[in-house]
Design a protein around this nucleic acid. Structure first.
Length: 479
RNA sequence: GGCCCCUUCGUCUAGUGGCCUAGGACGCCUGGUUCUCAGCCAGGUAACACGGGUUCGACUCCCGUAGGGGCUACCA
C-alpha cells in the first residue's frame, strides 16, 4: 500500500473530450503504477449546467476506456457520497467555521458594484481584484443588511504575500497573493463555489495527489490557502498541459473536439485511444510507442510527463489504431468486429444471413487492412449482392469483353455452390492471353467485386459465391 | 491590461553542458513486395523561436524579446 489516492473530478456539463480523458487516464495510470486508488467524483455544484445524462455518459466513457476507480458515485466507498450535490452540508459547515474563525466574511456587493470595482482597477493597469470592501463590515452592519433581506455571499480572506509551491510537472511556481483579492467560496443561495467544494472534498476524501489540467494552475494558490485554513497539509499537485487542435487553437468542447462516444462509434479500439492519449505529453524514454493499457500501467511515470501543450493528431491515432487491430488475435478481431457492427447497427443484411464461420472468414481478410472498424462497413460491400458497381469505368478497356467471357465460362463450369479456385482461374486466364498484369487483373477484380480496391483476389475468391460472380459478370456484359 | 505557464522536424517526442554533423514515431516522397488499395520491407525529406550572457564548450544553465496558451467569474 502506497497510500496514494488520486481523483478524477469531472463536472457533468458536457461530454468527455480528449483533454478530460487525458487527465482521467493520467490519474488512472498514476494510481495504478503507484499501487494507489482512484476516486471518481462528480462536481455538479453548477446547478444550471450540470445534467445527470452527462454524468452517466462520462462514467460509460471512462469504463469503455478501461479506466477503473475504486470509489465513486456508482459504487460508493468509505468517503462518500461522491456527488458534490449530495455533500452540501460539508461545505456549509466549513463555511460557517471559516466565518467563526474570521477566515471568511459576508459580502453584500452587487454584481454591478463588483463590475465597477473591476473596471476601475483595470483602467489603472492594476489586477482586477476585489477590493475587500465588505471585509470591514461590523457584525451589526451585517445583521442589519440581512434583516433587510439582503443575501450575502461568503468571501475567503486572502492575505498579502508570496505563495510558492512545487508542482510535480512544472517545478516551483510562485504567485503574488497581493494580486488575488478575496474570493467567493459560498454563493448567496448557499451553494459553494468550485474552490471550496474541491478543497473540502479533497481533504475529506484523503486525496494525496491532484492531477488536473493546467488551466487550474492559477487556482492552486487559492486552494493551498483553503487547505491551510482547513488545518490540513495540501496534496501534491501535478498540472498537465492542455491539448490543442490542429492549428494550435485550444481544443475545447465548442470547437468540435471529438467526444469519447464518437471514437467508439468510429470503431477505434479503446486501447488504441488510451495508447495515443498517453503518448500526448508522455514518452517512455526508450523509443517504444505501442502499449496496451496494462503495459502503460506498469511503465507510466508522472515525472516523464512533458510541460508543453500537445496538438492532437488524428493521423497518428489512426496509425496506432491500425497497429492495435493488427495485433489482435484472429478470434479477438472477429469478436470485436462483430460486436462493433452489431452494436452500431452496421451489420449488413447479407452478412447476417451468412453462416457464422463464413462471416468470420470474410471479416478476417480485412484484418490487416483497416484502421478502425467503421471501415468494415464499406469493405464488406464486395460481398454484398445488393452492391452497385462503383468502378465500372475500369471496364472500358478493349480486352474486357474477352476477359468477361472467360470468367463466365469458368464460373459456369463450376458446380452450383462451388466457389472459385484462384489457381485454376488464374491459369485459365493466363492461357487465354487476352491481357496480362494490371490490364488483366483490374478488370477481373472490378467484374467480380464491383470495386477497384480490396484485399488480394486470392483471399476474396474462395469466399465469393459462384452465383454472385455470375450475376455480376452478366451485369457487366450488359453495361 | 495584470498575473502565471509553455517554446526541438508539419505533428507527437528523445535529449538534463561535451556521446548531437540532434535520435525515434506519425505524415509526406522514392523504390521493393512480378493485380489494386492497404499492409509490410528498404531508403529519403524535415527541427533546437530570436537576441544577449555564463562556460574551454550550450538544444541543454541565466536574462531579455517574440509567439502561443491559461487565469483574471457568485464556471469548473
Amino acid at each position: 500500500m502506497s497510500g496514494v489516492r488520486v481523483r478524477f473530478a469531472p463536472s457533468p456539463t458536457g461530454y468527455l473530450h480528449i483533454g478530460n480523458v487525458r487527465t482521467a487516464l493520467f490519474n488512472h495510470l498514476f494510481a495504478a503504477c503507484s499501487g494507489g486508488e482512484l476516486i471518481l467524483r462528480i462536481e455538479n455544484t453548477d446547478r444550471e449546467r450540470s445534467k445527470s445524462e452527462y454524468a452517466e455518459q462520462i462514467l460509460n466513457d471512462l469504463r469503455w476506456l478501461g479506466i477503473r476507480w475504486q470509489e465513486g458515485p456508482d459504487i460508493g466507498g468509505p468517503y462518500g457520497p461522491y456527488r458534490q450535490s449530495e455533500r452540501m452540508q460539508h461545505y456549509r459547515e466549513t463555511a460557517e467555521k471559516f466565518i467563526r474563525e474570521g477566515k471568511a466574511y459576508y459580502c453584500f456587493c452587487s454584481q454591478e458594484e463588483l463590475e465597477t470595482i473591476k473596471r476601475a482597477a483595470q483602467a489603472k493597469g492594476l489586477p482586477p481584484k476585489y477590493n475587500g470592501r465588505c471585509r470591514k463590515l461590523s457584525r451589526e452592519e451585517v445583521e442589519q443588511k440581512r434583516a433587510l433581506g439582503l443575501k450575502p455571499s461568503l468571501r475567503f480572506k486572502v492575505e498579502e504575500g508570496f505563495l510558492e509551491f512545487e508542482d510535480i510537472i512544472r517545478g516551483p511556481v510562485r504567485f503574488d497573493m497581493g494580486l488575488f483579492g478575496d474570493f467567493v467560496i459560498l454563493r448567496p443561495d448557499g451553494v459553494p463555489t468550485f474552490h471550496l467544494a474541491v478543497c473540502v472534498d479533497d481533504v475529506l476524501m484523503r486525496i494525496t495527489h491532484v492531477i488536473r489540467g493546467e488551466d487550474h494552475l492559477p487556482n492552486t494558490p487559492r486552494h493551498i490557502l483553503l487547505f491551510r485554513a482547513l488545518g490540513e497539509a495540501p496534496p501534491r499537485f501535478a498540472h498537465v498541459s492542455l491539448i490543442m487542435g490542429k492549428g494550435g487553437e485550444p481544443l475545447s468542447k465548442r470547437l468540435g473536439a471529438m467526444s469519447v462516444e464518437e471514437y467508439r462509434k468510429t470503431g477505434y479500439l479503446p486501447e488504441a485511444v488510451d495508447n495515443y492519449i498517453a503518448l500526448l505529453g508522455w514518452a517512455p524514454g526508450d523509443n517504444r510507442e505501442i502499449f496496451s493499457l496494462a503495459e502503460l500501467e506498469k511503465v507510466f511515470s508522472l515525472s516523464r510527463v512533458g510541460k508543453s501543450p500537445a496538438v492532437f493528431d488524428k493521423e497518428k491515432l489512426d496509425w496506432l489504431s491500425g497497429e492495435h487491430i493488427r495485433a489482435l488475435s484472429h478470434e479477438a478481431f472477429v469478436e470485436k468486429a462483430c460486436d462493433y457492427l452489431v452494436s452500431e447497427g452496421l451489420m449488413p443484411a447479407f452478412a447476417r444471413a451468412l453462416p457464422q464461420n463464413r462471416l468470420h472468414e470474410i471479416l478476417l481478410i480485412f484484418k490487416d487492412n483497416i484502421l478502425h472498424f467503421d471501415a468494415l462497413r464499406d469493405r464488406l460491400e464486395i460481398f454484398n449482392p445488393e452492391a452497385e458497381n462503383q468502378d465500372a469505368e475500369m471496364l472500358r478497356a478493349p480486352q474486357v469483353p474477352g476477359i468477361l467471357k472467360i470468367l463466365e465460362e469458368y464460373f459456369l463450369s463450376l458446380a452450383p455452390g462451388e466457389n472459385a479456385d484462384y489457381e485454376a482461374l488464374n491459369q485459365k486466364l493466363k492461357a487465354a492471353a487476352v491481357a496480362k498484369g494490371k490490364e488483366l487483373f483490374m478488370p477481373v477484380r472490378v467484374a467480380l467485386t464491383f470495386r477497384a480496391h480490396g484485399p488480394e483476389l486470392k483471399k476474396i475468391l474462395p469466399l465469393l459465391a459462384r452465383e454472385l460472380c455470375l450475376e455480376r459478370i452478366k451485369k457487366m456484359k450488359v453495361a
